[in-house]
Structures are given as structure tokens and as C-alpha cells.
Design a protein around this nucleic acid. Structure first.
Lengths: 204, 204, 204, 204
DNA sequence: TCATAAGCGAGACGGTACGTCCAGTCTTACG
DNA sequence: CGTAAGACTGGACGTACCGTCTCGCTTATGA
């Protein structure tokens, strides 16, 4: 006990955030999310407990639970902070654009921060709040994807029966499937073809 | 806590399985998997701890760990025991067959036992053994699905470029996507169309 | 976190008590009470938290709570273990005997272990179980004291109206009063006189 | 938690004391001590935390700590405020007077506010400031009691050897003993006799 | 036939993390 | 400067499971 205290004061002369009055301290939020990210990198997702995050961030557990009432909520926050806002750069054809998209997300999901997304999906299976957040996120991404498909459709790339949103979901599902079954090494190009070829006008 | 005590005294007046010598007691396995299933029904997936299963089954924890070395392994066993072996009955067209398949799995996944599958996916994200079991299961189901697609292809339903296995995976992905995002109320018929229409020969 | 583990394994190669089957391990009880005593000596009563005891004893908190369901219960156990069974040695007169008694308890209450008794009294004010244990203890000691008074009465030392038990309680109360008001440096001899003189036959 | 919210909305529609400039606001002190008393009545001594008092009084915690630097200090203040200043009314004989005294304090100690005194004794065992306050209080009451004994002695009720202050302490000790061992239902009359008979001149 | 090897129920054990509570310190914004 | 508000670190609380262990018992098998 005494040892630990000594260790702490001995090993790190951290600046020790304090309250900034009766309002949320952004530095604290920053420190906590940062700590979560560090732990992810160092220990992996299994090490990411509320306890560990609090300790690493030198934050009280109560503070964590105040702002992120569950592990799931924290996961979502960490993911939100880490994920770059991917914009679907138009590569000329839908297939190429989607291949680039697959390449991007697979690369990201392989990073320490990206792995959080798999965790979020996992957590969503038993935490309704996370499920809701995940669903929100899915819809948001769906819209972005559907837009790309829409543009492709406008260009006349797609067959008549194609519905942008339905196709967008099929595209997403293929990616998520690779994620949850640990096959992020799949070839993005090939995958794009496997998912989309049927819908392209060329292949009658 | 009180529940557990009641459960113990209520459900059994000490039938007390014992060892049947130096070999695995099938009654024990049965009791454990049965207990797991009961807990799933009564308390939901959150209540399914090794501890609780052992208590409910009146089994020693060591026995559990001997045969199912982790929660994940137990989950898989419970799922294996519960899932009926779905055979893809040919409905004439691929779309109809797949619609029936979607209807079947969505119905099953909504049952207490079926919910275990979502849990397995969740567990697979952090338990390599479960991931492996899941991957084995995926491949097995993929083969079964691909066969159906193959038959459809032989009938000339599908366009030229269609690859049975790739299409099968797309079909699966669509289902799993609905599962993990909690949309098992999706319309199977519609979904089958959304996934497959592009690949059918009719829609050039 | 990792640091702590390393520290623990590094600094002490303790024998690590294990379960000895489905029954209480006496070594564990010993280790826990011993740890409690050590903490008392090192950090004083304020440091005696369940947490600290568990840590020092290298015992799980659950183990502590299993056998001593509250801090109070642990305190009582520590006290029971530490207190010598004082036998009232007859010094010839009641006054002398009681003076010796006062000297003995005051000396004991000043030791680290003895200080626990004050804590028990404190805890008894808000923990019914401790209150009960304290009351049991009081009665037990009362009987022992009353016997001494009885013998004195039999010798004709006491005036007629004296009731052994009532007098015994007065004697105890005087001691406890000094304890809870932190005046254990009172002169035992003098105190014995102040409490008893009125009841002795000499002082008409 | 819910209770507190209800309390807040229930008891006050934001009367909201404010600073009255660079000096102590008596209304605040009043509100705080009042809140403490209310909590005592509603939740008992266990609910009396600085946090809860601040909430109920709609006072900042800083304000509490400014005027009462510890829980102990607050307890003492609450007790000081609640206890009536008992004046020992002369009942003719010392025994009768003391019986009345015992009856009075036992009755008081049984009230919600009176229970604080037991808490103060408890707190005094580990908080030096409270111990000091308690000791001050003890001495003050001792003087008052000794005066009564003195008057009795002057009337010739007591035997020669009796020392007013020593006897007063014995009288107090008997009362405190009943308090800390939860026997406030003791018969005051009887107790007075048990403590004092030996010292009265009648009983030679 | 009887030792021995395993299966089994039971549950204690050291641990980790949980989510809650409170202590005591601090800052802001208002008066 | 006093005050209400409440965020903050820190740490103990008591609980729930984890996975490992040992006990004492049972039964089948092979020496």
C-alpha cells in the first residue's frame, strides 16, 4: 500500500489535473481517452478495463462512470476519437471506389484503435446502449455509402433493379463479416468485385 | 442469490450425479448443457457465468473447466446442441430458397438458444478459441450455402460471372449483419431480393 | 499494473496459500488476523481497512468477507486473538485486586492490539453485530469481575447493601470511561479507591 | 439517490441563500445544522455524510469544510445545538437527583439527536479533534455534576471519604457505559442506587 | 481382489474488475 | 470575500466471477 503510493509519487511527477469548477474538465476527458488508447496499444483490448483506464489516466473511477456510464460507452468514445472521417474518394468506377474503401477500413481495423470497433460490435450484443450507438453509426455510414452508390447509379454504372441503400448495406455487410471473422487480410479489390459485379451494367 | 437457493432446493431433491468411474459421465454433460440453456432462458446471456452454470447443474466447477475450458467453449457447445441442422429445402428459385433460409435463421436467432450465436460472435472478438470455432462453423455453413447456389447456377438462374462461394458469403454476411445490429425483424423475402437480384439472369 | 505484479512477485516469494479443499484453511485465517495485527502496529487503527488487510495477507477480499462479514467482525476476531485471558489474581483486598486489574487492562489497552478494543466500542455504535459481540464480551467479563467481588463480600470486606454484579459493573464502567476518553494514564490504585472506597466496610 | 433528488425538490423550491458579503452567513450555518438534524431523523447516523448534509442544506461542500473541518466537528456542532442544557434540579436527595439525571439523559440519548452522542464517542476513538471536544465536554459536565455532589456532601448525605469529583465521574461513567452498550432502557432509579448507595451515610 | 486411476460434487482460495460511495480539495461564477 | 455548485483524485466499500486447487467420495479397470 505504502509501496504503491511511493511508486506513484516516485515514478511520475504528473501535473495532476484538478477540478476546474462545477463543469467538466476537458483535460480530464482527454487524459482518460488518451489513457484508454495507450492501454489498447500496450495491453490490447483485454486490458481495457475501467479500472485500468482510471489508474493510467490518474482519474477517479467515479469520474469515468460519470461521463461514460459503461465500458461500452467508453469504447464508443475511444472509437469516435480514433476513427478518421473517411470520405469516399471517387476512383472513377464504383468497384474501384469500394475497393479503396475496403482497403481503408481493413487497414484501420487492424490498428490498435481500429480493433475497438470489433469490441464495440461484441459489446453491442449484450449492452443495449452500445447497440444503439452502433446502430446510429451504421446508419450514418450507410448514408455515406448510399450516396456513392447513388452517384454510380447516376453515371449509369448499375443495372436497373439496383437500390442504392440495399446495395450499400450489402457492401457494408461484406466488410463487417470480414471483421468479425478475423479475415481483414482479404483482398479489397477482389472483394469489391465479388460483392458488386452482379450489379454492374457490364455483366448482363 | 435467494433465487439460486430456491432453484437448488426447488428443482432437485439431491439426485446427485456421481462419478461413474474413470470416464466421462454423459449425465453430467447433459445436466450442464441443460443448466446453461435454462439460465439462458431465465436470466439471459448476462447471467450465463461458469459459476452459475455449475451451481444450477449441481456440478463442480472443475468438471466444467475439464470439458469446456472457457465460457466460449461452453457457449459453442450450447449452440451446437440447440441449433437444428438446417437443410436448405429447394423452393424452386434461389431467391425463394434463400428467403426461406433467412426466415428460418432469423426465427431461430430470436429464440433464447439462438441468441447464443450473437454471443459467440461477440466472444470470438476476444477469445481465439471461439474465433476458431466460429470460423469452422462459418466454413461449414458456407459449403452448404454454396451448394445451393451451385444448384441454382446449374439451373441457369445466375448470370455468368457469379461465383457460388463468393455469393454464398454475401448471402451469409447479410444475415449476420442483421443479427449483430439487432434487426432480425427484417423481411426475409425482401432481403433475399436485395442481396440476390443483381445476380439473377432475369435482370440484365 | 504490470509494475505492481512485478513488485509483488519480485519483492516477496511468499508461499502462496491455496485452497485445501472445500473447507476453511486455517493458514488463511492465521495470515489474515496476523496481517490485521501488523497493520495495526504499522499504520494504526485508521489503516485497518478490509482492503489493506486482504492485500497484506495476500488474501482475496471475498475470503475476508466470507469469514468476517464486516470490519467489525474482523476487529472482534483480532481482539479475541490478542487479548490474554486475564485472571483476577487475588491481592488480599478487593481494592488491591482491582488496582491490579486496572493496571493490567490500561497497560493492554495502550498496546497496538489493545487499541482495537476502543475501536470495537466505536464500531458497536453503528454496527449491530459488533454491538452484540461487545455485549457478550461485557457480560462475560462482568461475571468474572462479579466473582471477585463475591469473594470479597464473603470475606466481609463489603458493606451490607453491596450487590456484586452492580458493583462489578461500576468497576468496569470506570475503566471503560478512561479508555474512551483517552485517559489510560490514570493511576490504577487511586482509581480503585475512588470507585470502591464507599463500599468497603472500613469507611462507615 | 432518488431520495436526495426528491428531498431537494420536495423541501425547497430554490430559496437559495447567497453570500452576504465577506462575512459568515448565519442562515447558512442554520441551514446546515438543520439539514444534518433532518438527515439524522430520516436516515439515521449512517446517512450523515458531509456530502448528504451539503446536498440537503443546498450548501457547497467547501462551505461545510470551511466552518466544520471534519465530520467529527460537524457531529459535535449538531450535538451542541440539539442538547438542552440540563440543569440538575435538586430532588432533595442525591439519589433522587441523580435518578432524574439518568432518566433525562437516557431519554435524550434515545432521540435521533441524542444518538449523535454515541457517534461522537465513536468518532473520538479515531479523530483527535473530536476526542478533544469530547474531553472538553466531559470536563464541563463533570463540573456540573460535581457541584450537585458537593451540595449533597454539604447537606451531610455522603460519607466522609467521598470526593465530589471522583464520585461525579463514577456517576457519569455508569451512564456512558449504558449508552455505549446500548442499555438505555435501564431503570434510572435503580441505577442511581447501585452507583451511590455505598457512598450514602445511611448505609454504614 | 484390490490398488489405482480417473470422474465428480463441493467449495475455499488468490485475484481482478466491477460499480458505488464518500472524503476532502479545488475552481468557477455570482453576489 | 462568502457562497452554491459540483467536478476532481483517491481510496475503501462489498459483490461477482474467474480459473485453480484440494478434499472425500465413487466407480471401472488391470495387475
Amino acid at each position: 500500500m505504502a509501496d504503491q503510493v511511493e511508486d506513484l509519487t516516485g515514478s511520475c511527477a504528473k501535473p495532476q489535473r484538478r477540478s476546474i469548477g462545477a463543469k467538466r474538465n476537458p483535460a480530464t476527458e482527454e487524459a482518460i481517452l488518451g489513457a484508454a488508447q495507450e492501454i489498447l496499444r500496450d495491453k490490447g483490448v483485454k486490458g481495457l478495463s475501467m479500472e485500468a483506464v482510471a489508474k493510467r489516466a490518474r482519474a477517479g473511477k467515479a469520474t469515468l462512470y460519470k461521463w461514460w456510464p459503461s465500458r461500452g460507452a467508453l469504447l464508443v468514445a475511444v472509437y469516435e476519437r480514433a476513427k478518421g472521417e473517411h470520405v469516399h474518394e471517387d476512383k472513377g468506377t464504383l468497384i474501384a471506389t469500394m475497393a479503396a474503401f475496403y482497403r481503408y477500413v481493413f487497414d484501420f481495423w487492424r490498428t490498435a484503435e481500429g480493433q475497438v470497433f470489433a469490441l464495440i460490435i461484441a459489446e453491442a450484443q449484450s449492452d443495449a446502449d452500445v447497440a444503439e450507438a452502433l446502430e446510429r453509426y451504421r446508419k450514418e455510414r450507410l448514408v455515406a455509402l448510399a450516396e456513392v452508390v447513388d452517384r454510380s447509379q447516376a453515371r449509369g454504372e448499375l443495372i436497373e433493379g439496383a437500390q442504392a441503400e440495399a446495395l450499400a448495406e450489402t457492401i457494408m455487410a461484406a466488410a463487417w463479416m470480414r471483421l468479425i471473422t478475423g479475415r481483414l487480410d482479404s483482398d479489397p479489390e477482389r472483394l469489391a468485385h465479388e460483392v458488386l459485379d452482379g450489379w454492374m451494367v457490364g455483366n448482363r
